[in-house]
Design a protein around this nucleic acid. Structure first.
Length: 171
DNA sequence: GCCAACGTTGGC
DNA sequence: GCCAACGTTGGC
């Protein structure tokens, strides 16, 4: 997950008309909501899946809302809200031979891997666990997170689903 | 283009 | 640590 240093900047203003919603996974041992809160803004490096890349490259808009999800941990679930904070650009770790994300087949002329910056917005008042999200599956039809065997680390979320999941923080 | 082998993800 | 699901690789 993200390992590249970035200067901390204030979250960008919401792009007018931005309405896209996303869910992005991170292993908290690698990069947690605490880390994002400290950093403010983080380049989302290390995505090496074409479908996830295509969402960042082709569909994300500045200001889009993100459910920040902790995966591969004791309590998988949504723990915070972030925003898309940059246009898509090449992931610099693909060019770095010392990086775990180095891709020798990628060139600067034709970069294979793309990232966006992700800006912290807020934590949820309490984590909303995957188990709990599943309990609301009837109202979350089509939510990719609930697809069996889903392994995508970046996925679209319908705005109504986004709002429902966030609303669970107050139950 | 097929498909078996292999690697990774991620919940449990 | 286990295992199911899925993506990628590479031989043919």
């Amino acid at each position: 997950m993200p390992r590249v240093k970035s200067t901390t900047e204030p979250a960008l203003a919401l792009a007018p008309g931005s309405s896209g919603c996303w869910l992005m996974k991170s292993e908290p041992d690698e990069f947690s909501i605490d880390d994002l809160e400290r950093r403010g803004t983080e380049p989302w490096s290390g995505v090496r899946n074409y479908q996830a890349r295509n969402f960042m490259r082709d569909a994300m808009q500045l200001g889009d809302r993100i459910l920040f999800y902790h995966s591969s941990c004791a309590a998988p679930g949504v723990v915070g809200i972030a925003r898309v904070a940059s246009p898509p650009r090449p992931d610099p770790t693909q060019f770095d031979p010392k990086s775990a994300y180095h891709d020798p087949k990628s060139t600067r002329e034709s970069p294979r891997w793309i990232l966006v910056d992700v800006a912290f917005e807020r934590r949820l008042r309490r984590p909303v666990s995957l188990t709990e999200i599943r309990r609301h599956a009837a109202n979350l039809a089509g939510l990719a997170l609930l697809n069996p065997g889903n392994r995508l680390s970046v996925m679209p979320v319908e705005p109504a689903h986004f709002d429902l999941i966030v609303s669970l923080e107050d139950l």
